[in-house]
Design a protein around this nucleic acid. Structure first.
Length: 359
DNA sequence: AACTCGGGGTT
DNA sequence: AACCCAGAGTT
């Protein structure tokens, strides 16, 4: 199979392909809140939320975020904790931290406005080639490609290209192809490609009969559309036994601010230890807890189990309940006492929220 | 080039 | 269960 130089094919069929896509998009585009206008701030926030996150999940978060942080200035001036709270449950929390960082850069270097070139946008924290291309094309209609997972899949099929789409070289090659295909209306072309991937040219069982460019699709011509794209890499998920402490006093429960490094960095959670590490030190969760609190606690024997799957590890959590005489407040790590029946201001990731149900 | 970093929906 | 998702940053 020939999969290196697609430029002759683009030369011959590119205009027809782009035209069919644009017509289809005009008639089939979904009505989404970030498509209300071309405000780069709104486009940016939506694009970052949409990184590795599905549209249906993002909609509510996006609307709430715009109410809480209506402008770049509001975001730049917010507490990181408040931004993380707005992000609570979305995952990949470094995205939220970098949003605030980038907003601060815009306040300092761009007079509170979003940059107007691809190169400047690409320098901002949390903005890579895809997001820079998406914001510049959608907000300003600049002639830059926006190659995401959808576009990689669509292109691998249209061009019948079996290179590994997980490979950085392939992504660069596909960006080059996207640029060669790009019509004047890059704003809608880029969105049309992604919309096609999200709704028609889906990973499994693509609906080729409904596809506006099926007549130009080389994979379909070879009946290979279900074998593409090729994606080799895979990371395996490692199971971990975790012991979690629920420390209660007077209807309040102890939460701890997590380390600023690693998984769920800077979020809050219940005291938690890996069972293996505790056993190496010959300590139980009870011992660990008393060591870190500096006072005695009374185990109440209440036990509950829950499982939480991350992308590359799975927590098998066992929850132990303790009572304590007074609300201790060690200086490190930072702790708080909250009422679990009420919503708090502290960002608590889903793994810990799972433990709260029915308590 | 490989690894880290969440959580939810599909198949 | 495995795979995917409007990916970026670090090593």
């Amino acid at each position: 199979m020939k999969n290196i130089d697609h430029l002759p094919y683009i030369e011959e069929h590119g205009k027809a392909l782009a035209g069919a896509l644009l017509t289809w998009y005009q008639q089939n585009k979904r009505d989404l809140p970030w498509r209300k206008n071309h405000d780069p701030y709104r486009i940016w926030i939506s694009e970052v939320m949409l990184q590795q996150t599905q549209v249906d999940t993002v909609i509510d978060y996006f609307n709430r975020f715009m109410v809480t942080f209506p402008t770049i200035e509001a975001l730049a001036g917010a507490d990181e904790e408040q931004v993380l709270k707005a992000w609570e449950g979305l995952g990949y929390y470094s995205r939220a931290k970098r949003l605030k960082q980038a907003a601060q850069v815009m306040m300092l270097d761009y007079d509170g406005a979003f940059p107007t070139t691809y190169a400047e946008t690409l320098k901002l924290p949390g903005i890579g080639p895809y997001t820079a291309g998406a914001v510049m094309s959608i907000a300003y209609n600049l002639p830059v490609p926006a190659v995401d997972g959808n576009v990689l899949r669509v292109f691998s099929r249209v061009f019948n290209d079996d290179r590994d789409i997980g490979d950085m070289k392939t992504r660069k090659a596909f960006e080059h192809m996207a640029k060669a295909l790009l019509p004047e209306d890059s704003r809608h072309f880029n969105q049309a490609l992604m919309e096609l991937g999200a709704t028609i040219c889906t990973p499994k069982n693509p609906r080729c009969e409904a596809c506006p460019i099926h007549a130009l699709c080389r994979a379909k011509a070879s009946l290979r559309q279900k074998d593409l794209p090729v994606k080799k890499k895979r990371q395996k998920n490692i199971p971990l036994e975790m012991e979690v402490a629920l420390v209660r006093h007077d209807h309040h429960t102890l939460i701890v601010k997590r380390s600023s490094e690693g998984l769920l960095a800077d979020l809050w959670g219940f005291p938690i230890v890996k069972r293996d590490e505790a056993l190496q030190d010959g300590m139980s969760i009870h011992d660990e807890l008393e060591e870190f609190l500096g006072v005695k606690v009374k185990p109440t024997g209440e036990i509950k189990k829950a499982k939480h799957v991350f992308s590359h590890r799975t927590w098998h959590m066992t929850l132990y309940a303790f009572d304590i005489d007074h609300k201790v407040r060690p200086h490190f790590p930072q702790v708080e006492w909250i009422d679990l029946t009420k919503e708090s201001d502290f960002p608590l990731p889903t793994a810990f929220k799972k433990l709260i149900v029915h308590m």
